[in-house]
């Protein structure tokens, strides 16, 4: 019933891939990823590259947030940009119209994201999972159209003059400082999502993805847990939205089209649903590749599309698929003596 249930056998099953994954380990990979992000400005610290890097980092945060919904829990969300928009608009309005600092808007954004998650997820998650895709698609459009028509959101021209980030009296609005602040926040978001994924709740999400009935039979209230996944995704998206507004200082309805939702979903699927390293890689790939292809000028989205198709043909499970593997201590399972029965 769930759209991603059937999986073809993959290279992730080969002993080599298993050894590789164990060797690297998610934690070590995380440190490597963080080091790369921290060192990148030393290679090129032009404003242009910093803006590409910052966008990539934000995209990573969105992708790990959507991964909670799609990758862990198996719920297809086609309107994820809506939560991103809610975060950006709520904090943007509070910061420009009411002069709040961005940090002060965080609790309000959290509340708005949770509320939106409950309003959309509450009724739809009771239905078959297919409905969610359609409702979320509509939700994404409704949020964008609403922002387009309200006065407080600035209508089609949006909001200008969103202040830069300032944390505890520290001005982080210069491109370099902002980039480093974003990297730290996104790193925490990635670790947080991964930790949730490896907890009691994260396992329950995967049980639901694998077999909803069997999960229910184990006492898992599947509706509540699906709602929890949806809300968690909303929170990640909303928080990323605050940073997005701070980066651009101006937002408008055009910033939150369906294309965004599609690209975030693409990052998740391309990287490997449910796999933290995969999704991070996918997000970087999807956000940076079009920039690297600038030389191809008019053809760059064509080339981008072809590359995506090639990846999906050769790695249908994604660049870095998630795979079930845990270390087990060498043990001798008690061997049952069949002879005893035949005697």
């Amino acid at each position: 019933m769930t759209w991603n249930r059937k999986k073809a056998p993959t290279s992730a099953d080969t002993p080599r891939a298993r050894v590789l994954n164990r060797l690297l380990g998610e934690r070590r990979l995380g440190w490597i990823g963080l080091a790369v992000a921290l060192l990148a400005p030393f290679v090129d610290a032009s404003n242009y590259s910093l803006s590409v890097l910052t966008s990539a980092a934000l995209f990573v945060m969105l992708a790990v947030g959507l991964n909670i919904v799609v990758g862990y829990c198996g719920l297809l969300d086609l309107g994820y940009a809506a939560f991103f928009a809610i975060g950006a608009y709520v904090s943007g309005v509070l910061a420009t119209t009411y002069g709040w600092s961005l940090l002060a808007t965080v609790p309000v954004v959290l509340a708005a994201a949770v509320l939106a998650g409950v309003i959309i997820g509450g009724p739809t998650l009771r239905l078959r999972s297919d409905y969610l895709a359609i409702v979320t698609l509509g939700f994404g459009e409704i949020i964008r159209i609403t922002a387009n028509n309200l006065d407080i959101t600035g209508g089609p021209s949006g909001i200008y003059g969103i202040p830069g980030l300032e944390l505890f009296g520290l001005d982080l609005s210069s491109p370099v400082a902002f980039y480093y602040a974003v990297v730290v926040i996104v790193a925490l978001a990635v670790v947080g999502a991964a930790r949730l994924g490896r907890s009691r709740m994260g396992r329950a999400w995967r049980f639901i993805r694998e077999d909803e009935d069997a999960a229910e039979a184990m006492g898992i209230h599947t509706y509540k847990l699906k709602l929890a996944a949806y809300i968690a995704g909303a929170v990640w998206g909303g928080l990323a939205g605050i940073l997005f507004g701070a980066q651009l200082s101006a937002i408008s309805p055009q910033s939150f089209t369906f294309l965004w939702s599609a690209l975030i979903l693409l990052a998740v699927v391309l990287g490997g649903m449910g796999s933290t390293p995969g999704v991070v890689l996918g997000a970087v790939f999807v956000s940076v590749l079009p920039e690297l292809l600038r030389d191809a000028a008019d053809y760059r989205f064509f080339v981008f599309g072809v590359l995506l198709i090639v990846v999906m043909i050769f790695r249908p499970q994604g660049l870095w698929p998630s795979q079930a593997s845990e270390r087990t201590p060498a043990r001798r399972p008690e061997v049952q003596k069949e002879d005893a029965w035949q005697a």
């Binding site: 396992r203 694998e210 184990m218 079930a324 593997s325």
Partner: peptide, 22 residues
């Protein structure tokens, strides 16, 4: 279940942990 309903993609240990969720 009559037709096995394991969480096939998850580890054997995780499958059993499902029973301890509550």
């Amino acid at each position: 279940f009559q037709n096995l309903r394991l969480f096939g993609e998850l580890t054997v240990l995780d499958n059993v942990r499902a029973g301890m969720h509550m």
